[in-house]
Design a protein around this nucleic acid. Structure first.
Lengths: 243, 243
DNA sequence: CGTACTTTTGACTTAGTTCAACTCTAGTGG
DNA sequence: CCACTAGAGTTGAACTAAGTCAAAAGTACG
């Protein structure tokens, strides 16, 4: 059940056996969430840290005026709220998009984990990569026009999912509605719809029924100015440009 | 010279004496940078981690089409590139805005630091707060119109600088040109200028000669939808559940 | 005082939003 | 198995926030 965590921690290099054993001995429990339900809400002071085991979830922030901004996608192996055990309360919400199973790790267990240098280091690394991803997201929203913005986002998603083996031949699952895509990229639903049509006409992407198809990832990277360096997937043969 | 780092690490609670002693024994050297010069560039593989001791710097990412996005401000005590010792290369640039003194900490020393649970934990916490700030930045750029966007940014800056005692009575130093403000917020220089005028006419902010004045911070928070929870600064500056 | 930024202004263009209606799709229950 | 519904996607038309261009005015400083 906690294997997803080990995979995550080993993303930057193998973990000592005793650390792995320690992780496996954590007493954790699982919890399932239906689509479109909140896993954690702003203001919560959870006593457990949540780890996505299966499913697809996202972080979002409510903004006055009823709008909201999606500020992160969570796929299996991602930690939802490592920060809450330090900080007082959630400063954003997390919602399940598809049926999602979450592993709950008690706050004290996390504190124990942090006493182990290898694990602590691995968590820091994972957090640093998240940070880099957020910076790229800012640049994307801040500087690119709608078409490139959408294209760039798709390139990032493709890269992230490819690493964990969740793509096949330029196809990947993207269970977001066009409205949610808009909330992710700071664009209106209508504009997302029109840009998507334009991208399809140019044979750059095809999004249908939660399935995203990228016929030529290189062409999409080209048009959207995507460069993969910030994901830091390197080393273990994952420092790719396209295929 | 490395006191700034200790202050940073103790931001979330006191550090054991031996850890502090360890930090003080690090062999580091300083380096000065003139305004408008790059401290670190994209693609660099620095052998040292950089810590801002005095001055004001910022992170930025170049985007195709000659534009660029500022993705973070660095004030004294901030670490520039904790991630490079893990990751292979910088994925963005850091530039000094005012005369800036930087402390260089050798990569190996950082690795030694990470072997110490208290320090490692403190670094993780600092990184998690940075992450929260970035998420808020995304929501700001993605969802707010120009006036609220600028106002919100100023509120955040005010909060951050207040904690480190760099504000006095709603006044704070903001050594950015209007063009750079635009690069920070994803707006054109001209639009920044006009919004700034509008904000001034409404007595919300007054920016002149690198000095920002906020007559009524509460009013500004109100108009920009600012809530401070995400900075996790609390009352005394330090309102965390640290143990 | 001259050079080089920065800030400001005006006139014009445009990318993206809003509103409101219509269609399509998938799921529900009779 | 079909009818009904609700959410998701699509369309058109009108609107506006923000961008662009280009030039003037202010400021900093050697």
């Amino acid at each position: 059940m906690v294997e997803a965590l080990i995979r995550k921690l080993e993303g930057f290099g193998p973990l000592p056996e005793d650390d792995k054993a320690f992780v496996r001995n954590l007493k954790v429990r699982a919890r399932d969430f239906a689509p479109r339900t909140d896993i954690i809400s702003e203001g919560d002071d959870p006593s457990d840290v949540h780890l996505v085991e299966t499913g697809f979830a996202f972080r979002y922030k409510d903004v006055e005026s009823g709008k909201r901004q999606i500020v992160g996608l969570l796929v299996p192996g991602d930690l939802c709220d490592l920060h809450v055990f330090i900080l007082k309360a959630m400063d954003h919400n997390i919602a399940a998009q598809s049926p999602t199973r979450v592993v709950l790790i008690p706050r004290e267990s996390i504190l124990d984990l942090l006493e182990r240098p290898s694990i602590s280091k691995a968590l820091l690394m994972a957090t640093l990569v998240d940070e880099a991803t957020l910076r790229d997201w800012i640049a994307n929203i801040g500087q690119r026009n709608a078409d490139a913005r959408i294209g760039h986002f798709f390139c990032e998603l493709h890269a992230r999912l490819k690493v964990v083996g969740l793509t096949s031949d330029g196809r990947l699952s993207l269970p977001l509605t066009q409205t949610q895509l808009g909330e992710t990229l700071g664009l209106s639903t209508v504009h997302i719809n029109r840009s998507l049509q334009s991208l399809r006409e140019r044979d750059l992407v095809l999004l249908k029924r939660g399935m995203l198809e990228i016929p030529d990832i290189y062409a999409l990277q080209q048009m959207s100015g995507y460069r993969s360096n910030y994901l830091h997937l390197g080393e273990s043969g994952l420092n790719f440009v396209s295929e």
